[in-house]
């Protein structure tokens, strides 16, 4: 077994592209679900429309990068309104069902043959990240400490990603300290009480949905740019459930929990995945387990982890049981 490789890839995973993307998605989920109690099960769609907005503007229509970013952001906001208007007045589980359905709609449309000219079918879109890498201030070469280093392109994407994470966390911190955040947390507890105190609950829920979507959509941009390509199936429902697992792992309704949660989540996933692959390669399990089966073990562990976490430690690793967000309803 090559422990050195396992170690290096695991450490890299803690700050790598997946961690950045999922941290941004999870910060958004944390605003919606952790603070405001909204069950948005379509977070993947928010990342999807943003990434596709950028990719389609640049690669399909050949327009500028910044216009692509603007279109991606606008698409996210429009999606939030489309989902929010019918459901935010209704019970929490209606939003859950509508958002998960919407996420599937978005994915199916992206991958459809009918719109292949625009969205590129199941192959997705490439060639939209040139302008982004043209802005790269890092000279060609590798950056990092010893084996834990990245090339200049990855370094640039990760730098932008972590800056966005820092800004998002600062934003969440300021908001949740303010009376605005107080209203949001109160809505999570009991929206009728908040209504009886003269607050427009619908408006606050909508603001939370839009804000969570917009922060998530930054993750969509980073995802697309980091891979220099996007495919529709990146944005399946599993993506959203990963983001929820991350939020709950760190502890819902805490500023840094999505970031710490994302890092722990990916470190564990990469470590388990690599160790199992190596072990299978080295014949530790004989012929009982094949390399292709290792992929499913990851998901099995996520599902199991999510269940055990909610049963035995619903407040997450760092959460405080007294102010735990989850048992509000």
């Amino acid at each position: 077994m090559d422990w050195n490789t396992i170690f290096v890839t695991t450490v890299k995973a803690s700050i790598g592209l997946e961690t950045v993307v999922y941290a941004l998605a999870a910060i958004g989920v944390n605003i919606q679900f952790g603070y405001a109690g909204l069950l948005n099960f379509g977070q993947a769609a928010f990342l999807g429309v943003a990434a596709y907005g950028l990719a389609v503007i640049v690669s399909t229509f050949g327009l500028s990068f910044w216009l692509g970013i603007a279109v991606g952001l606008a698409a996210t906001v429009v999606l939030a309104f489309l989902l929010g208007i019918p459901t935010l007045r209704l019970r929490a589980d209606y939003l859950a069902i509508v958002t998960i359905a919407a996420a599937e709609i978005v994915r199916l449309v992206f991958r459809s043959v009918a719109f292949k000219d625009v969205f590129g079918g199941s192959d997705g879109r490439q060639n939209f990240s040139g302008d982004f890498y043209a802005m790269n201030p890092f000279a060609p070469g590798t950056y990092g400490i010893g084996p834990i280093s990245f090339n200049e392109r990855t370094t640039w994407v990760l730098t932008v990603g972590w800056v966005l994470i820092a800004l998002s966390c600062a934003l969440v911190y300021l908001l949740m300290k303010s009376p605005w955040g107080r209203v949001l947390k109160a809505i999570r507890e009991d929206e009728d009480a908040v209504r009886s105190l003269g607050k427009n609950v619908f408006s606050y829920k909508m603001q939370a949905l839009v804000l969570g979507g917009v922060i998530g959509c930054l993750g969509g941009f980073i995802f697309g740019l980091g891979q220099a390509s996007i495919q529709p199936d990146l944005f399946g429902t599993e993506f959203t459930f990963y983001a929820y697992t991350i939020v709950i792992l760190g502890g819902a309704a805490r500023v840094f929990s999505p970031v710490v949660g994302a890092a722990i989540f990916w470190v564990l996933l990469v470590f388990v995945g690599n160790t199992l692959s190596e072990a299978v390669g080295a014949g530790v399990f004989g012929t009982a387990v094949t390399v292709t089966q290792v992929g499913s073990v990851r998901f099995i562990l996520v599902g199991l982890g999510l269940m055990l976490l909610l049963i035995f430690r619903p407040q997450g690793i760092f959460g405080d049981k007294r102010e735990m967000a989850l048992d509000a309803r």
Binding site: T245, G303, G305, P314, L326, D327, A328
Partner: peptide, 23 residues
């Protein structure tokens, strides 16, 4: 357990079972 917690537990169970089937 709250309903929201149970709903998310059911998501965990679904993921778990689905990939056990795949395995």
């Amino acid at each position: 357990s709250s309903l929201v917690a149970m709903m998310i537990i059911s998501i965990g169970l679904a993921l778990f079972l689905r990939y056990v089937f795949l395995f």
